[in-house]
Design a protein around this nucleic acid. Structure first.
Length: 489
RNA sequence: GGCGGCAUAGCCAAGUGGCUAAGGCAGCGGUCUGCAAAACCGUUAUUCUCCGGUUCAAAUCCGGAUGCCGCCUCCA
């Protein structure tokens, strides 16, 4: 089974052919470090994290580069407003970014370069373009001449004439063509600047990615990713710069993730509907947000809402419930179990089939939604064995659970979910929900103890009174063999 | 104005030429249970926005209509 990838450049699903057998070079546009990360960043991060994880699970050696843009107008604005240096700003938001990513179980990329640490690479690239007559300097600024690069527009499916007709381009007297874009920008008084052959200035936005991807992955590499909004102009310009400089196409496969909408509206500062990751995970377990992202295909738009997250939480609880049953069963009866018994029920084979289908779904353009379907089927299978199967011998159940545990470890490792111990997960979930509703956990647990006592004495009416009292607080009780399990809502 | 995408059950969401149209949430009936809950079983789209066409065969391909959305300006 070969990997397939939808390539933005050709708008087709293509069979992935790595440049070097068994290896993948992947560059993804990271954040501009001037504010905290929001749901949109979470989606991009999770999407490419799963791609990274899947490639590794399939045995590829992956070099995953994700940059930080740490010099930019927005950063300068913020630094000026706060009266601090741009490094104060970028250090702060890179740190917060790293915290958020860790919370979401996003693996650290192989290399996380910063623009400001690659000035020499950028200047070299711009000089090359200048020497080739594709860039021109005017009064300390350097522009890329789109007219001298005939393939311009190849990624986004536009051509120069159409764009000229569109006319929504900014007016700048220095540019020869309104569509020319800046490679190097002369610094104004008091702005951060770097020395260059064109005087003190700073790089344009697009050049950093051309320079850094080339530095770490070479003139041509396998995969370049980012949000769909980056297709034009950012990635279009990146291709133009790189290819004009090196004479080679920089990227074989372009992957772009879809946007997150908020309650069916575009997320924007003016609508005030930006949800920072750190705010969301105060309300929901981080795996809820993560599962929410992988429930749909990475290219479709997703609509974020509290209702959607609540439903996702219920689905995640379903999985953790299965994992908890499995854990309990394995704890009660240790050992290898009866493999023949597991095989007899057909369970071992079904688990095996599901695991194969799971991997195949991800091979097909990273279809996490489809893969998740098989995960839920596996969860049902576990529940059947642990709770519904009445006549199955314990040793056979144990063997199924052992096999299922290995499968779930794989699902979890690739999707980046199910990373908590089930008891830990429910504890965290209860405490989040209790905090949201202002409920007092020790008080709840004391009521449950009272009820357990009443039940032991077969005082059913007292037990039911307590159940009703707790139900009024949205507390749900589940009487199990030894103890009463509870959850909120 | 230019470029592109999407339309599948009450809701979310896979499926892109041919087995019974995944899966999740919600609902209903049952099993289990002191009562519950969870779990399991069954059930909820004879049909994939609409109209034409291609084909032995289409949700899936082609043409058209309608509706929604994104990009073209900083943006994951």
């Amino acid at each position: 089974m070969s990997q397939k990838i939808f390539n933005t450049k050709t708008r087709k699903k293509e069979v992935f052919q790595p440049i070097e057998e068994g290896a993948v070079g992947m560059y993804v546009c990271g954040i501009t470090a001037y504010d905290v990360c929001h749901v949109g960043h979470a989606r991009a991060a999770v999407v490419f994290d799963v791609i990274f994880r899947h490639f590794r699970a399939r045995g590829y050696r992956v070099t995953y580069v994700k940059n930080f843009t740490d010099i930019d107008d927005k950063i300068i604005d913020r630094a000026n407003r706060e009266g601090v240096t741009i490094t104060d700003i970028t250090d702060r938001y890179i740190r917060l970014h790293d915290e958020d990513m860790a919370a979401l179980n996003v693996l650290a990329p192989t290399i996380t370069p910063k623009a400001t640490e690659h000035m020499a690479d950028m200047i070299t690239l711009i000089r090359t373009l200048e020497e080739k007559g594709i860039a021109y300097a005017v009064d300390g600024d350097v522009f890329f001449a789109v007219g001298n690069y005939p393939a311009y527009g190849g990624l986004s499916g536009r051509n120069l004439d159409e764009m000229m007709a569109g006319a929504r381009v900014d007016v700048n007297d220095k540019k020869r063509n309104p569509l020319d874009f800046v490679l190097w920008k002369k610094s104004k008084e008091g702005e951060p600047s770097w020395e260059s052959p064109w005087g003190a200035g700073r790089p344009g936005w697009h050049i950093e990615c051309s320079a850094m991807s080339r530095r770490y992955l070479g003139d041509t590499f396998d995969i370049h990713g980012g949000g769909e909004d980056l297709v034009f102009p950012h990635h279009e310009n990146e291709i133009a710069q790189s290819q004009a400089a090196t004479g080679k196409p920089p990227v074989h496969y372009w992957i772009h993730n879809g946007f997150v909408k908020i309650n069916a509206e575009k997320m924007s500062k003016s609508l005030g509907n930006i949800f920072p990751i750190r705010e969301i995970i105060r309300q929901y377990h981080p795996e809820v947000l993560r599962l929410f992202m992988i429930q749909s295909h990475y290219r479709s738009p997703v609509d974020y809402s509290d209702t959607a997250l609540r439903e996702t939480r219920t689905a995640l609880i379903r999985c953790y419930t299965a994992l908890r049953q499995m854990k309990d069963l394995r704890a009660q009866s240790g050992g290898a179990g009866d493999a023949a018994g597991a095989a007899a029920g057909g369970y071992a084979k079904r688990l095996n089939d599901l695991a194969e289908k799971f991997d195949a779904a991800l091979d097909d353009d990273f279809n996490t939604a489809q893969a998740l379907g098989f995960v839920f089927e596996a969860a049902r299978l576990i529940n059947t064995v642990t709770t519904a199967e009445k006549k199955m011998p314990a040793a056979a159940k144990l063997a199924v659970c052992n096999a299922a545990a290995a499968r779930f470890a794989h699902f979890g490792a690739v999707l980046g979910v199910f990373q908590s111990d089930p008891d830990e997960f429910f504890r965290a979930d209860r405490s989040l929900e209790a905090a949201k509703r202002g409920l007092d956990i020790p008080q709840i647990e004391s009521l449950i103890r009272d009820r357990d006592k009443a039940r032991a004495e077969k005082d059913w009416s007292r037990a039911d009174d307590i159940r009703r009292e707790l139900a009024a607080m949205n507390i749900l009780l589940k009487d199990a063999a030894g103890e009463t399990f509870w959850s909120i809502e």
